Amino acid sequence: MDDWKQAWKLKSVQVGAASAFFYALILLSEQFLSVWNVIPQELKNKIPESIGEWVGMFVGVAMVLARLKKQPELHGDIKPFVTITAGHSNVDPGAVNGKYNEAELVRQFRNAVAHYLAVAGLEFKTDGTGTINLPLTNAIALAKGASLAVEFHMNAAASKSANGVETIALPKDKVLAQKLSVAVANVFGSRLRGDNGWIDQSQSARGRLGFINAGGLIVELGFISNEAELAEFNLKYWSAAKAVAQVIIEHEKDA
């Protein structure tokens, strides 16, 4: 521009210069403090009082900026993760129907969900891999540090006709609980129990469940005591696991 010598009068230039000044302070604050700290005190005492006041103010500002500046070396990147666990454990079979036990079936389901989450590249943790199904205490510990925690169980009842899918959760997770139940029910051809698949823990006969109190959701995949639902599970659990994994993936994308 022809009158560039008068550019300092422009507000845009003044604001830009101020921004550049403070950005330079942020970048150089640590270096300035390092240099200031190695100057002998006797030399600092020889600085005229009027100048010393300005230097002192500059040091104070530099200290604040250095403190506010992001320091990655002090903070590791914390990546959110999903927890998926299998109910019961290797020493607690849960409900049993003939040669099938709940702990083994839900472990297989957990592994299938884990497979699809891994394919999608989602960070997750489980209470074991392969044939390992760790106790509830491990699942609760994982749930407390997760962005989302889901555990799988199967219901059982004295009546062989009892059926349906439900997800037990706190009211804050009602919508997600319903989505998980729908995903399972659609594959198995099951009905939805409770409120469109959601069971409020406070209304559950099971009482206060530790996994849910830790922030998790418990999906009851059907009734192991119902021969038809058990057969559907064994035939289609991989497809149901894929549907559940998709609900989890979409939930984490929207979070």
Rank of each mutant, 00 (worst) to 15 (best):
I132L: 02
N226H: 07
D3Q: 10
G56Y: 14
N97D: 10
L217F: 03
F188H: 13
G60P: 02
A169R: 13
E227T: 15
T85A: 11
L27F: 06
G128V: 10
K236H: 15
L209M: 07
N90D: 04
A20Q: 14
A20K: 12
E232R: 15
Q178S: 13
E42D: 09
H115N: 08
E227C: 09
E73S: 07
G94P: 09
F211K: 01
G121W: 05
Q178N: 14
K174L: 12
T137C: 10
K125F: 08
A114S: 11
K172L: 08
G216V: 06
L192A: 01
D195Y: 04
P40K: 10
G145E: 14
I78M: 11
S159C: 04
P80E: 04
D2V: 13
E102I: 03
Y23W: 14
N213K: 03
V182I: 07
G130T: 08
F21C: 14
N138S: 10
N97P: 02
R110H: 09
P135R: 13
E166F: 07
F188D: 09
L74Q: 04
G121F: 02
Y100S: 13
V35P: 00
V59C: 10
K236T: 10
S225Q: 05
N37H: 09
S159R: 09
Y237L: 05
N213G: 13
L221H: 04
A183F: 03
S161E: 14
